[in-house]
Structures are given as C-alpha cells and as structure tokens.
Design a protein around this nucleic acid. Structure first.
Length: 422
RNA sequence: GUGGCCGUAGUUCAGCGGUAGAGCGCCAGAUUGUGAUUCUGGUUGUCGCGGGUUCGAAUCCCGUCGGUCACCCCA
C-alpha cells in the first residue's frame, strides 16, 4: 500500500465479488422467504433526523449513532435500525390500505461503535413487519416466517431455537410481588440483562425494586406457558408443525423500550446462545412516531451474525456452496480458432447473448488452449468454436467433453438444448 | 470509550539489528485448432504510515492509521 492510498473508514464494508456472493445469497434467501409469506418490499431513508431516535431512546443512544450536522444545519443520523422509519411511513400511509400490511425491507444500517466479531459500523438488516393487526395470529405468522428464513438458509431443528415470551406476563408478577407498576420498564431492563450480568448485581437490583431473584426464577420456571396469548401463539405454531423450533422463556424481554406484547429471539444453540434475530409486538410506536394508531409486530435479522453462523454450520454452508456453484458462472465461451473469423465470432457472441445465454470471449487473439483455459476458469458449460469452416461451428459440452458440428443458424437452439441437460 | 494481539509479494505466512524469503497463485513455454495433471522457466514488494535510536532498522522505541478479539453497549 502506497503512502498516497486512502484506506476505507473503520467498520465500513467493502464487498469484493467473493464476499458479495454471500451477501447476495442472504438477500435472495431473505427476499424469497418474505415473498412466500406474502410480504411486499418497501424502502425507507438511510439518513434521518437525529430526533427520530432521540425521541424514542433518549440522549444516551445518540453516542452510538453515526450523526452529524448537514450543510443545511440539520442534525441528521444514519439509521441504526429501520423500525422508527417504518413506523412513521406506515402510520402516514396506512389509511385506505388493506390490513394487515405485510412489509419487508433489506438495507444497510449504521452504528458508531468499535467493531468486533459479528459487529461492524455498517451492516445489512432484513426487517419484516405486520401492521394493522393486533391479534397473536400475526405474531405467529411472523415467527413462522423467521423460522422459515432460517430453514431457507439451511439451518435445521437443533441448530437454532426461537425463545418466545410476552412482556405482558410481567405486570402480573409485579402486582403479586407488591412492586409498583411504574417500575415495569426498569424491571424489564434487569430481566433483559440477567443472562449476561453478574448474578450478585442482578439480585441487588431486583431487591431494590422490592422483589428477588428466587421469585423471578420461580415465575419463569413455573408459570411460563400459562399466559393465554402465549398459549394461543404456541397452538398456532404447533398447528404448523413448528413447535419443535420454539421454546417459551419469559426471561426474553428484548432491550428495546417500544415492545408491548409477544417478543422473541432466535438463538444459535451451539455457540453459547448467540442471538441471530429478534423481534416482537410494538403496538404504540406508530402512534408515538407517526401520530396514527396502528398495531404492529416485526422482526429483524442482521447479515453479519447470520453469516458467521452459516459459515460455522456445515450443512448450511454446504447449501450456500451449492448455490455458489451456479453463481457467476457463464453459459458459453466462444473460442476463436481462426482470427480472420473474429467478426463471425462476434456475431455468435451476440446471438448467444440474445438467446439469454451468459457468454464471454477473448478480446485479443489467443491460442486455442489458452481460450479453453479461460472458458474453464469462467465456469462455462459449453464452448462454441469458430474457425475456418464457419458458418459451420463446433459446439462442445465442456463437462462431458463431447463435441458436435452444427450450422450457425441452429446454434442458439442447440446451445440451449445442451445447457438444459447440464 | 478501555484493553490484548496483529499489519512483510495477489494470498497464506517465515525472517526479528547487517542491503527481502518460501508455499500457493499468476505469466510464459513443452511445434499443428481443445481444458486436467506434470515438467521447465519467469514475475511480484516504499516490510501500513510518520518520527526516533543506531555506522546500519522489516527487525528496537514512540506516535499514528488500519485489522482482529474481548470489555462497554447492544436497537
């Protein structure tokens, strides 16, 4: 690297063709799964007023935003997530639309923090949201989708687990424990951190609120699935044959303040329960941000953690590699055996491309063996040899190593026929 | 924001005070219009950047910028 070259910004990503392939695979799989569930794609702005995030989460969160003052003096921030934008867009646009609205989006998000494994300053997030439907039937369809996204990526039962909960079970607990209802948000924060926090600190915090760890653990252990909405959710997922992927765990409450009902997270079972996706119901956010009441639920999955998980899971990686085997490979390579026939070869290249066959050729004169090596390197399935005998051309099936002589006029059909067999 | 480790050829890395190396890759050749393997030959670097110590620095010191992992935080 020379002194004059300029490095990329820390945490921002460059996708060379090799890594772009994995990203595109994720996008394709995400998009296909969302469409199977009848979701439609939308897009929101990447840059938003900083206030959009401040209003929801307070000043503390601004430190983790990529934010600045633009040339017009506006305080702006690159989006750290897409739900606030969605809430505004949906609240503004929902009137006159059939409900539920099932919307999905794939796009980059940004957070100003130091990167580590599974975490960068720029990452892509897949978001699916169901708007305008308060029933748990929507939550269930959303969770089913999240499971199918995982299966679409090649993950199986035993690789991951959907841990399911409902924030509304906790007010009940607090009432019985004699804790004031206004302490609910603080209490949920403690529950959210419980798994990764020192036990002594958790105990101390719970006691400060007038309860204790034993009571919380007992509640999580015993009363888990009794909550009717959770029962309904589980019944719905069981009817779909998906109960094996799901487990109720009231300790899941999600860190975000805006969740109001069922919440869930998908965990990598092997790697110490690493979270790969999460979501839940947020019935008040559209009112808060957009000024129109609209019940909603949604989930998000980032590309970095799921990418790591995929690479560490052999059968998921194998599925990707199968997909990759056909990706960026071309159909035909035109070999110019007689340089005086280059104009005919160019006609051939264009004819093949017009027939929908990805085709390449050498720009400059080259030996025939060299051209075959290039064909091989590009993953061409067939070679078309143009030589002195034109308009007769030779069509070679590179995998079978078989070759036939055919007239140029019948080439496209013959090439398509050979490609169809491969 | 804090800390550990790491920046040397396209790549993976070795070298750790005496003018820069290996494997892989890449390029060329092994006579006629056919891919693999093999063989032969060849190619490549401001040793991240800037300062300092030294007769001499890839090597030691300081700074800086990146990368990576952990903490913090996690939407």
């Amino acid at each position: 690297m020379s002194a004059s070259s300029i490095q990329s910004l820390p945490g921002f990503r460059e996708f060379l063709p090799e890594t772009c392939a994995l990203r595109n695979y994720l996008f394709e799989t995400w998009r296909a799964a969302a469409r199977r569930y009848a979701f439609v794609e939308y897009e929101g702005p990447v840059l938003e007023p900083t206030e959009l995030y401040r209003r929801k989460s307070g000043d503390e969160i601004v430190k983790q935003l990529f934010h600045f003052t633009d040339a017009g003096g506006r305080e702006v921030a690159m989006r750290p997530e897409t739900t606030p934008s969605l809430a505004r867009m949906a609240a503004a646009a929902h009137k006159g639309r059939r409900k539920p609205m099932k919307w999905f989006q794939i796009g980059p998000c940004f957070r100003y923090e130091r990167q580590q494994k599974g975490r960068g300053r720029e990452f892509y997030q897949f978001n699916c949201d169901i708007l305008g439907e308060p029933s748990v039937a929507a939550d269930a369809d959303l969770i089913a989708l999240s499971i199918d996204v995982m299966r679409g990526l090649g993950f199986r039962e035993g690789d991951f687990l959907v841990r399911l909960s409902d924030r509304n079970v906790w007010p009940d607990f607090l009432a019985k424990a004699g804790v004031a209802a206004e302490n609910l948000p603080a209490f949920l924060q403690i529950i959210d951190k419980m798994e990764r926090e020192k036990p002594a600190l958790t105990a101390e915090r719970l006691e400060a609120l007038g309860t204790n760890r034993e009571a919380v653990d007992a509640f999580i252990g015993e009363q888990g699935a009794d909550w009717p909405p959770l029962q309904a959710l589980l019944a719905d997922l069981t009817a779909r044959g998906l109960s094996g992927f799901v487990s109720v765990d009231l300790g899941i409450v999600r860190g975000l303040a805006y969740y109001t009902g069922a919440v869930f997270e998908i965990f990598d079972i092997r790697k110490g329960m690493r979270a790969v996706a999460g979501g839940g119901r947020y019935d008040n956010l559209c009112q808060l941000i957009g000024g129109n009441d609209l019940p909603a639920c949604g989930f998000a999955m980032g590309d970095m953690v799921i990418g790591d998980f995929l690479n560490e899971t052999p059968h998921a990686k194998a599925r990707y590699e199968t997909w990759l085997a056909g990706y960026n490979k071309i159909g035909a390579f035109v070999v110019i055996a007689d340089e005086t026939r280059r104009p005919d070869a160019l006609a051939t290249v264009q004819a093949l491309r017009s027939a929908g066959i990805a085709t390449d050729y050498n720009y400059l004169p080259a030996k025939v063996d060299k051209q075959f090596q290039t064909a091989e390197a590009l993953g061409a399935k067939i070679a078309v040899i143009i030589g002195a005998e034109f308009p007769e051309v030779r069509l070679k099936d590179l995998a079978r190593r078989t070759e036939q002589a055919i007239p140029f006029t019948g080439l496209s059909e013959a090439a398509a026929a050979v490609l169809a067999q491969v």
